[in-house]
Amino acid sequence: MKYAYYPGCSLGTSAEEYDVSTREVLKRLGVELSEIPDWTCCGASAVEPVSRLLTLALPARNLALTERECPGLDMLVPCSACYLNHLRVGRECATDRALPGRINEALGAEGLSYAGKVRVRHLLDVLASDVGPKAVAAQVSHSLEGLSVAPYYGCQALRPFALFDDPEHPRSMEPLISALGATVFGWDMGGRCCGASLMATRRDVALVSVAAILDAAAGADVIVTVCPMCQMNLEAYQSQAHHADTISVLYLPQLLGLAFGLSDEQTLLDKNLAMTDALKGKLRACEAASA
């Protein structure tokens, strides 16, 4: 298994632990990554309120590079906003015949063109569909038995395109969590919006969503996410959301890495802002039980 890897900007700065744990866990699972050379920002969720054409041209630039430099490979994207931006290019070109021409006219500024051949995949899709829970279970050396994990999917990995999961009742993380020996925390907030960039523009509104999600996670040991924005919103504003108990919010590959027995340098748990003593205690108990 080999993929063209698009880390995205957050994974180079505030979500470094997502990048490192993704690379390490996939390496352990025998998945090869080839980072797309010369990749640039996809515009995140800020580009569409600024320019419609740029919304498609920015990700199309990365897709064109993938097509030329990594022919035949699917593009693997860990960030949900990056994922949707890249996915949209093909989806919108399929319904608007004039669009491919306009996008390629823009890409012409750099001598690039995109023929629409790249399949865009979310990291969760690759883990759940291509790798699968059996291959994950085969790597588990430190069972997470007794750990209650709340799967948080966020928005843009699920919506608006239902490609690898049910966007109303997402389940794709559950077999992976079970494969680690952990227990899936049952809740219905897995697809509830975290507020996204409203955390910067209308924090009062975003905090209502964050509080609702954190309250619903009461009883779980850890929330697991697959998006750097969701992770930051759920983790960094817990006290402002007037949430009494802090809860750790890990990236899915960090949780996999713990169960695989990866080193601290590979899981980078110390980069998380809300690594609670309660979770550390639970993890030690898991380790003692499996030793």
């Binding site: 900007c9 180079g12 700065t13 505030s14 470094e16 010369d38 640039t40 920002c41 320019s51 054409l53 740029l54 041209a57 920015l58 630039r61 006219e105 823009a106 890409l107 012409g108 500024a109 750099e110 110390d270 980069k271 998380n272 802002l273």
Partner: peptide, 23 residues
């Protein structure tokens, strides 16, 4: 405190100038 407050990646500075101008 987590070493996450840094200037960030500057290897691609100016890379998107032509595309922005064209759009």
């Amino acid at each position: 405190a987590k070493g996450k407050l840094h200037l960030g990646d500057s290897t691609q500075r100016g890379r998107l100038g032509p595309l922005f101008a064209k759009v």
